[in-house]
Simulated scan of single mutants.
Amino acid sequence: MKRTVLACTLMAISTASAAELLPVTADAVFTFNGQEFTISRASTIDQTTITALSQTSATCPSPCLSPMVVARNVPTMGELEVIDFLSNQVESGEGLLIDARLPADRALGFIPASVNIPAATVAPTNPYRDEILMALGAEQFQGVFNFTDAMSLVVFDAGPATQDASTLITDLLAAGYPTEKIGYYRGGMLVWSTSGLSTDAATQ
């Protein structure tokens, strides 16, 4: 009996502590490229979009699940970390949220203030890869890149059944992009949408 009471007491204390630590926040509001964005949880979910996002793609033939850890020392992030990244690094101009999908897939909807850099554009075989790396803040001298002033990135794709994000991250690392400047949002649009978080469908 005493053990049961003690266990219940510990659970109550643990639950109270967790409630104090869990960030139950209001809408996240931030500015990107002079435009104000708001991330909130919607009351309805577009089932058609979710069904489309649930399908595997050519980049990850069925059956397929992307890895939980995409590369050593590259953190895997959840929704709250992505929102924090948007509200801080993206708003301050120090970071970018990268959508690694093809434009046709992005047309299904995307995370507000994200920018589209399809995975294939950072492949070593792409003749414009170096220009993209420099657009991200890297400096090149005699064929060698310096990433000291490169932007911090968080990369996502359609979700756990695709590998566009992991491909993009792998190629960024191969080019010399530092691991401490890259984050991986594995949940992607599938988890973001099913969580009821704000999406955008406007063309960019």
Rank of each mutant, 00 (worst) to 15 (best):
T4A: 10
V5Y: 13
V5M: 02
L6K: 11
T9M: 09
T9K: 00
L10C: 13
M11K: 12
M11E: 04
A12L: 11
A19H: 14
A19W: 10
E20A: 15
L21W: 10
L22E: 13
P23C: 10
A28S: 15
T31R: 09
T31I: 03
F32E: 05
I39P: 08
A42Y: 03
A42N: 12
T44M: 04
T44W: 10
I45Q: 01
I45C: 05
I45D: 04
D46K: 07
Q47D: 13
T48I: 10
T49V: 14
A52F: 02
A52V: 15
L53I: 13
A58K: 14
T59A: 06
P63Q: 05
C64Y: 00
L65F: 05
V70E: 06
I83H: 11
F85S: 03
L86D: 10
N88D: 15
E91S: 14
E94C: 00
E94A: 03
L96K: 09
L96M: 11
L96Y: 13
A100S: 13
R101E: 01
D105E: 15
R106L: 06
R106Q: 13
A107L: 02
L108S: 00
G109R: 06
F110L: 08
F110Q: 09
I111T: 00
I111P: 09
P112E: 10
P112K: 04
N116D: 07
N116V: 04
I117Q: 00
P118C: 05
A119N: 08
T125H: 07
P127V: 08
Y128G: 02
R129L: 11
I132H: 07
L133C: 06
M134A: 04
A135W: 04
L136R: 12
L136V: 07
A138M: 06
E139W: 02
F141A: 06
Q142H: 14
Q142I: 08
N146H: 10
F147T: 05
A150C: 02
M151G: 05
S152L: 01
S152Y: 10
V154Y: 03
F156L: 06
F156D: 12
T162E: 01
D164P: 08
D164A: 02
L168H: 04
I169R: 01
L173P: 06
A174V: 05
A174H: 13
G176T: 14
Y177L: 02
P178K: 07
T179G: 06
T179I: 10
K181S: 01
I182W: 00
S193K: 03
G196A: 07
L197F: 10
A202D: 12
T203C: 00
Q204V: 08
